[in-house]
Design a binder for these strands. Sequence first.
DNA 1: TTGTACGCGTTATCAA
DNA 2: TTGATAACGCGTACAA
Lengths: 349, 349
Amino acid sequence: MGTTARDIARHVGLSVTTVSRALNDHSDVAPATKAKIRAVANQLNYHPNAAARTLKINRANALGLDIPLGLHRSYDTIWLEFIGGMAASCARHGVDLLLSATDDTERTPASFERLVRGRRVDGVVVCDIRSDDSRVNWLLESDIPFVAFGRTVGQDDYCYVDVDGAAGAQEAVQYLIRLGHTRIAYLGLDATFGFSHFRRAGYHEALHSIRAHDPELEFEGLTEETAPAVARSVLSCPNRPTAVLASADFLALAVIRAAREAGLSVPTDLSVIVFDDNPSVQREDPPLTAVSQPNRRLGEEAGELLLDRLNRPEQGPGHRLIAPSLIIRSSTGPRPRNMESEGTTATVA
Amino acid sequence: MGTTARDIARHVGLSVTTVSRALNDHSDVAPATKAKIRAVANQLNYHPNAAARTLKINRANALGLDIPLGLHRSYDTIWLEFIGGMAASCARHGVDLLLSATDDTERTPASFERLVRGRRVDGVVVCDIRSDDSRVNWLLESDIPFVAFGRTVGQDDYCYVDVDGAAGAQEAVQYLIRLGHTRIAYLGLDATFGFSHFRRAGYHEALHSIRAHDPELEFEGLTEETAPAVARSVLSCPNRPTAVLASADFLALAVIRAAREAGLSVPTDLSVIVFDDNPSVQREDPPLTAVSQPNRRLGEEAGELLLDRLNRPEQGPGHRLIAPSLIIRSSTGPRPRNMESEGTTATVA
DNA sequence: TTGTACGCGTTATCAA
DNA sequence: TTGATAACGCGTACAA
C-alpha cells in the first residue's frame, strides 16, 4: 500500500536514517546520495506519513478553522472568501486546514480542546466573535493557541484580526458630509455582533465632529422582519434624513424599497451607503456605494498571524486591524437642495 | 502539557493497556475499573493523541474536501452550504474534515495524493466535476477512495453524488407547457460544466415530447459579458419565446432586464424560470420561479457515501442522484393570449 | 558521511 | 479481568 522510508532505504541500500535526512534536506548527506534517494522516493511515489511525523516532532502542521454556519448571514460571501484566504495562507506554508463548522447556536468550544490536545491541529482561528464572547477567555485559560476573527469590546490581550469598522463608518459618513448631508441615519444589526459597536462608534464620531448627531436617526437591533417598517417610519418622519448608512445589505434594500414607496428616488432624494460589498448590492438598481472589507485578505492574515505566533510565541498578542474601503457607486449624491437643514448645520466644503 | 494514557495509568495504578481498553469501551474490562478510568480521564482532561492512534490503526478518521474557489461562481451560496452539509455528516460520525481549497485553474490533484498516502485523510470528496474531467480516472487509477460531487458524461464506474439536472429541467419545462407555453428558450452556461449536459438533455426531452423543440431558441456557453446581448436578441426575434429557462441567476436577470427594455413585463408577457435558488433570485422583483437544489443535503450525502464506502469497500461504486424541486414564485404565468403559436403546437391541458 | 538505537502515544497479541 | 511486549513510521542523539 503506502511506501515508507524503509522501502526507499531497502531500494537504495542505505539506512532509514539517511533517507530521512536526505528527504529533509539535511546538510550532512552526500549530494549524490541525496539525489539518488530523492529520485527513488519520487519513483516509488513516496509521501511521508503525517501521523508518524506529528507523533515524533509533536507538531500537527495543521490549523483549525471554526466557521459559524446555520447563521442567518450564511449566504453572505464573507465566509467563503475568508475560508479561501486562510486556505491560501495555509497552502503557502505547507500546513493543512481543518474545518470545524459549528452550526449550533451554543458556542461550544469543546471540540477545540479535542483538536488541539489531540494534536490534530497546532492552533485555531475562531470566527464570529461577539461583543462579549466567552470563548475568548475560555481559549486563553485553556492555553490553546488561537487567533480571533473579530474582537470583543474592551479586551485586548489576545490575537485577533479584524476590520476597522469604526474607520469604515467614519469614512462613509465623512463622504456624505462632504456631499452636504447632515441628517444621516444609521441602521444597525444586533448589538451582540462584534462589529456593531465599532461601526456605530465611527458613525458617532464623524457626526459629533460637525455637531450633527441626532439619536432619533439611530437604530440598532434590526432584523429582516423589522427592517421594512423601520425604514418606512424613518423616511416619513417630519425632518427626514437625506442619507442612510446601513449595516447590512438587506437593511439598505429595505430602505430603498421604502424610498420608492414614498416616491423618493435614490440618490436624488436620498443617499444610501451599505456595509459589505455583496453581489446583491452591486447588482441593485442603482448599484450601491459600499464599505467593502477584504474578506479574503482577512482570512489570509488570520492564518499568517496564527502561524507566526505558533513559531514565535514570545511575541505575545498581536492584532491586525484592516481598513475597509469606500467604493463609490450610484446610490450617493449631493444633499437635495430643497431639504431644510436643521439649526446646527455645520459649514462644509 | 498534554495528558497521555500513561498519566491515567499511573493515576489509577493500572497498565496503559487496561486504560486503552477501558476508554475504547472493550468488553473485557471490569465495569468498576472502566468507570474509575473514565472518571480520571475526565478529571485529567484527557484527549487521545490522534497522530498516535492514526499511526497504530492506520486510519486517519478524517475526510478531505476539495472545493473550487476563485471560480466565477464562488459567490454562489452552493459551496458554503455544501461544506456545511459535509461538515455535519463528518461531525455526526466523529471524523474530521480537511479542506483543500484549490484556486488555481489547473486541476492538480497532486495534493490528494499527499493527503491520502500521508494518512491525513481516509478519502476525499472532489467537487466541480466537469463533463470530461481527467481527475476521475486519475483518482481511480491512484486507488484513492473518493466521491465526486457532480459527474462526467458517459462514465459511471465511480462514486458520485449529483443533482438530477435533467429531471429538474424537465419538470420546469413541463410546468411551462402546462401553462400553455410552447416557445421556450434555454440559456445555458459553458458546456464544460458537468450540469450543462444534463439540464439541456432534460429541456430537450420535455420539448420533444410535444414536438416543440426549436434549436434557434437554445443557447449555451453564455457568460456575464455575452448574456445581455443574447437576451436582447432572443426577445426581439420575429417569433419570440414566451418563456425562458435560464441556467444561472445572472442569465435570468439579463433576460428580465432585456424584457424591461423591450417593454415586456414578467410574467405577463414572458415567463422566466431559473436554476439555483440563490438569494438574488428570491429578492428579484418579481421573485423568480426557481429550480432549487438542496446543496446542504448534497454535502451530507457526499460525506455519508464516502464514509460508507470506506467502511464497506466491497459495495463498489454507488450513486446518489438527488431531485431538485421547482419553487413556483411570481415570474411564471400563462402564455400570453395574443402570441401566435407556431404550426406544430401540441394540444396541452 | 552513514548507521544504530531509541522513543513519540496508541492499540493488538498473547500470556497470566 | 489484567499486564507485558511489540509495533505503527518517522526523526534524532550518538557512535562509527
